[in-house]
């Protein structure tokens, strides 16, 4: 489902990470930890192809990603974001806002959402096409208690159909993973 071979990423003269190898199947969850600037988010971007790798290769099935620094269109409503993603992917659940308890804000433009609501919208966009690989970057950073519970439910569903990679330093999220990579500065 997701395999990385000899993965490395260099920024100028410095290697953010190098010689990373892992293979994830159904039910596997990989935790990526490390201090700020160690390359956790960059690794996720490399895994989904948004960032080129300096060496090595990644093989993956359909991917969904929800990242804390991911942007949304300020002028589009939540439902328009979902419809856009479904139309672009050619598949997906147009009622994905229900999965993240955001149906009540379906007609609100993204610029009027709180940071927690925006995080839920990104989650809905990441899972609407039932990806086999789900990448989450600091998934509970801006969420309240019900939001965190919701993420845990989504993760449980994800692990039934595929695998998961979480970049976080939150100790509560460590228990979700069965593999771990620790990056260093």
């Amino acid at each position: 489902m997701l395999s990385a071979k000899n993965l490395g990423k260099r920024l100028g003269p410095r290697w953010l990470f190098r010689n990373l190898e892992f293979e994830l199947g159904v039910g596997d969850a990989l935790l990526i930890t490390g201090p700020n600037g160690s390359g956790k988010s960059t690794l996720l971007r490399c895994l989904c192809g948004l960032e080129p790798v300096s060496e090595g290769s990644v093989t993956a099935g359909p991917i969904g990603i929800a990242a804390i620094d991911q942007a949304v269109y300020p002028d589009l409503t939540c439902q328009e974001h979902i419809d856009l993603m479904v139309d672009l992917r050619g598949t997906g659940d147009r009622k994905a806002l229900e999965l993240v308890n955001l149906s009540y804000a379906a007609n609100l433009p993204a610029q009027k959402l709180s940071s927690g609501m925006r995080a839920r919208l990104k989650l809905a966009m990441a899972v609407l096409h039932a990806p086999t690989v789900l990448l989450l970057d600091e998934p509970s950073a801006t969420l309240d208690a019900p939001g965190i519970e919701l993420v845990e439910n989504l993760i449980a569903d994800q692990l039934k159909r595929g695998c998961l990679v979480i970049a976080t330093n939150d100790p509560n999220e460590r228990r979700l993973a069965n593999q771990e990579i620790s990056l260093e500065v």
Partner: peptide, 11 residues
């Protein structure tokens, strides 16, 4: 706006 990544991922 960094929204290009959404399109890169899906389109």
């Amino acid at each position: 706006l960094r929204t290009a990544d959404l399109l890169r991922l899906a389109a």
